[in-house]
Write a protein that binds this DNA or RNA. Structure first.
Length: 433
RNA sequence: UCCCCGGUAGCUCAAUUGGUGGAGCGCCGGACUGUUAAUCCGUAGGUUGUUGGUUCGAGUCCAACCCGGGGAGCCA
């Protein structure tokens, strides 16, 4: 392949009137006798190319006629502004080169079912809608990193192989580690706490694995979390950080990914209304509200999916819920000094029925209390020796949270299902492609 | 693990109380100089998820299994 300057669809408007070379794929075609309209995509966007029989050599015309959906091609032509073209610009083609004629591309421009699309996920990603979601996913990740970086956070990675359960509650994937057992991480948090004691403000961003047999549109077996952890932060600090982070990401998506939100037909006013401060309630207040509304919520238990929806779906911004009962939360949650049966923890529920997008809180910093909690939860002390060390050598109050980015993306994009928020979803009965 | 639903052409679906499996779209061939999931004409395309059972006869009824989907619990 030559190194001849390749122009991308995303830059089309800067090349009006120029003759350019573009490389990509044929997304679709409409033909009209001596005119062919090619819907061309190159990864940066979609564009209409017009091939007129009168404008190019006979053999190039015939080559164009032979093109099939998803054939890889190189186009040479002139960029023209034209109101009839989707996107406002089109290419008047002067030559067509073919890299490969694609045979029988399975995903046609018509309707398809979920099963078929998931079986063809590797090809489904080429569609306009999936393309938009992938770009928004990237924006969410990049803007989160940018925001935390601007706040002085050090991005650090936590291990994926772990020797034991972080929290002991959920089911873990077990794997061989030479002659030892290992588990795939379900959270980087415990390691983040160690890093926070080293660098003050840290965050991890990585995959997490849950071997729960969850089979709903809100669950993936493998998903990605961004997890900030800050030394000397208390509950209110971590809530403020979560609010700021969420607002920063949404602002960035609204500013930079508006065309993609349009492709998804997202009602952006629902995102524009997301401002600080978020709605706030305690577990007890929320429980009272649920009892008034008459759901089948059991006092003292965690909220179910339906409860979360009832609490947050009508709100114009997320709902911050604090002070859950200590005994339904993880062992490391700091109890409220004034009311030890309530924890200094926080869940943030997204509006529009998207449920919990953030979970976190203040961690226990007192060594004796932490040891007691390990015992209460029947956790092996040996495995947590290093974690206890953090409380022996200059222990400080600290707090953090985890934000599931697929859930976040689902909310931003208003997706029906989490599976569209990640390129290759791992689901209960779906490991491939 | 439990509850509910589904599997028929490449895709999306139809098929009457059990009585000769169809349509739209796509593919392929043809027509058309401004199409927007283009339109129009034509051709081809089937072991009805698997196995067994009931019946003169099963896509349809029964059983088991396989593969998916939605939900509960759990969580982000």
């Amino acid at each position: 392949m030559t190194s001849e300057a390749q122009v991308y669809v995303s830059d089309l408007s800067q090349h009006e009137g120029e003759t350019v070379t573009m490389r990509g794929w044929l997304h679709n075609r409409r033909s009209s006798g001596k005119l062919q309209f090619l819907v061309f995509r190159d990864g940066s966007g979609f564009m209409q190319a017009v091939v007129s029989k009168a404008d190019l050599p006979e053999e190039a015309w015939e080559r164009t006629r032979a093109l099939t959906q998803e054939s890889s091609i190189e186009l040479e032509g002139t960029v023209r502004k034209d109101a009839r073209a989707p996107g406002g610009f089109e290419l008047t083609v002067s030559d067509v080169k073919v890299f490969q004629i694609a045979e029988d591309y399975p995903i046609t421009p018509k309707e398809h079912g979920v099963n078929f699309l998931l079986d063809n996920r590797h090809l489904w990603l080429r569609s306009k809608r999936q393309h938009a979601i992938l770009r928004i996913r990237n924006e969410v990740i990049m803007s989160a990193r940018r925001y935390l970086d601007d706040q002085g956070f050090i991005g650090c990675d936590t291990p994926i192989f772990t020797p034991n359960a972080c929290e002991g509650t959920t089911t873990l994937f077990e794997t061989k580690y030479f002659d030892q057992r290992a588990f795939l991480t379900q959270s980087g948090q415990l390691y983040n706490e160690a890093i926070a004691m080293a660098v003050g403000k840290t965050y991890s961003f990585g995959p997490t694995f849950r071997a729960e047999k969850s089979k709903t549109r809100r669950h993936l077996i493998e998903f990605w979390m961004i997890e900030p952890e800050v030394a000397y932060h208390e509950l209110d600090d971590t809530i403020a950080l979560a609010e700021n982070l969420i607002c920063a990401i949404i602002e960035s998506v609204l500013e930079r990914r508006r065309p993609e939100l349009d492709v998804l037909e997202r009602d952006v006013s629902k995102l524009e209304s997301v401002k600080k401060p978020f709605h706030r309630t305690t577990y007890d207040e929320a429980a009272e509200k649920l009892e008034e509304k008459g759901t089948d919520f059991v006092p003292g238990s965690d909220f179910g999916a339906q409860d979360e929806t009832v609490l947050a779906e009508e709100l114009d911004r997320p709902l911050v819920v604090t002070h859950y009962p200590t005994d339904i939360k993880a062992f490391y949650m700091q109890p409220d000094a004034e009311r030890p049966d309530r924890a200094l923890c926080v869940d943030i529920l997204a509006p529009e029925g998207y449920g919990e997008i953030v979970g976190g809180g203040q961690r226990i910093h007192d060594p004796e209390l932490l040891e007691q909690r390990l015992k209460d939860h029947d956790l092996p002390r040996d495995a947590f020796q290093w974690y206890l060390d953090l409380r022996r050598y200059g222990s400080v109050p600290h707090a953090g949270f985890g934000m599931g980015i697929e859930r976040f993306i689902s909310w931003i994009c208003k997706l029906e299902h989490l599976r569209e928020a990640i390129p290759f979803p791992r689901m209960l009965y779906r490991l491939s492609p």
